[in-house]
Design a protein around this nucleic acid. Structure first.
Length: 278
DNA sequence: TGCCAGGCTTCAC
DNA sequence: GTGAAGCATGGC
């Protein structure tokens, strides 16, 4: 167990942000995280202090990068014009959220199966995949299952995959596994390819369109200017910006801006309100 | 019970 | 290139 003082870090908001699907509240308080084959428990101790159930070395090599702790999001506030009440409120509401840097393979599969599902249903599907096809591991007497590798999923029939509530997306996941195993999709190359080329490659895959490609770019490949537009974001752009959100104003931070918007748009607090920018 | 969900492919035009 | 239909399943 190690202790860290981290400002601008709210594990409850991160867990509820819709970026990741294997971060859950613990009965004893705090949150469990399963990522990169590891299991972590995080607790908010108040006043910016947090405990992490790992070694300093593991924190430095895995979790600091996963939680994007080197980034400073405070610059975003200064980019918002005074009359954009919605985005100002969204930033305040989402304060402490981080833009997670997740495993690209897990991100790809998770967001392929996310289409036309709500977040609880996505989490259930991801967990079912892990339970059925993930590798069992243990950490501090807690057993868990890692996210299934592409190798494990290759060759599994759509009928079997469908038992994880993938629905019509079963064939998309099966094809992604096959392409990854065949070396037709390489994340190290996509990370270096540049935004447009990487997005074009992803969109060439079966079952990956604009929105899922942007999620993979943003959450799995480190392209922080990706701006996934799902049904929530589309509704917000129409409702608060009449369909004309000035993306160019937030160049370099669009991904995090989108996360603040998404998180606030789904909140009960905002949904009770009339449009803030009208 | 009906609507909707971190959408995409296919097909007609 | 654009727009509509169809898609599996579960949460609310």
């Amino acid at each position: 167990m190690i202790y860290k003082e981290i400002p601008d870090f709210d594990i409850a908001k991160i867990a509820d942000s819709g970026q990741c699907f294997r971060m859950n509240p613990l009965p004893s308080g705090g949150y469990s995280v399963i990522a990169f084959g590891r299991y972590l428990e995080v607790r908010d101790l108040g006043s910016g202090r947090h405990s992490f159930s790992c070694t300093e070395e593991e924190f430095d090599t895995i979790w600091a990068d996963y939680f994007d702790l080197d980034s400073d999001y405070s610059e975003i506030a200064s980019m918002i014009p005074p009359d954009d009440r919605f985005l100002k409120a969204a930033l305040a509401y989402g304060h402490g959220m981080r833009l997670l840097r997740q495993d690209p393979w897990e991100t790809m599969v998770s967001f392929i199966l996310s289409q036309r599902k709500n977040i609880p249903a996505i989490k259930a599907s991801v967990e079912a995949l892990c339970t059925r096809y993930g590798e069992e591991a243990a950490c501090n007497q807690i057993t868990y299952r890692s996210f299934p590798t592409a190798e494990r999923l290759t060759g599994i029939g759509c009928e079997d995959l469908r038992t994880c509530s993938l629905g019509y997306r079963d064939k998309y996941v099966a094809e992604a596994a096959r392409q990854f195993e065949a070396g037709q999709i390489r994340f190290d190359e996509l990370e270096k390819a540049g935004f447009d080329a990487a997005k074009s490659s992803l969109k060439g895959m079966y079952g990956i369109g604009d929105k899922v490609a942007d999620c993979i770019l943003l959450f799995g490949l480190g392209y922080k200017n990706a701006f996934p537009e799902d049904t929530w974001i589309k509704k917000i752009l129409e409702k608060e910006y009449a369909g004309h959100f000035p993306k160019e104003r937030y160049d370099g931070h669009l991904g995090m801006v989108q996360q603040y918007m998404f998180y606030y748009a789904r909140s009960a607090e905002y949904r009770m309100l009339a449009p803030l920018n009208s």
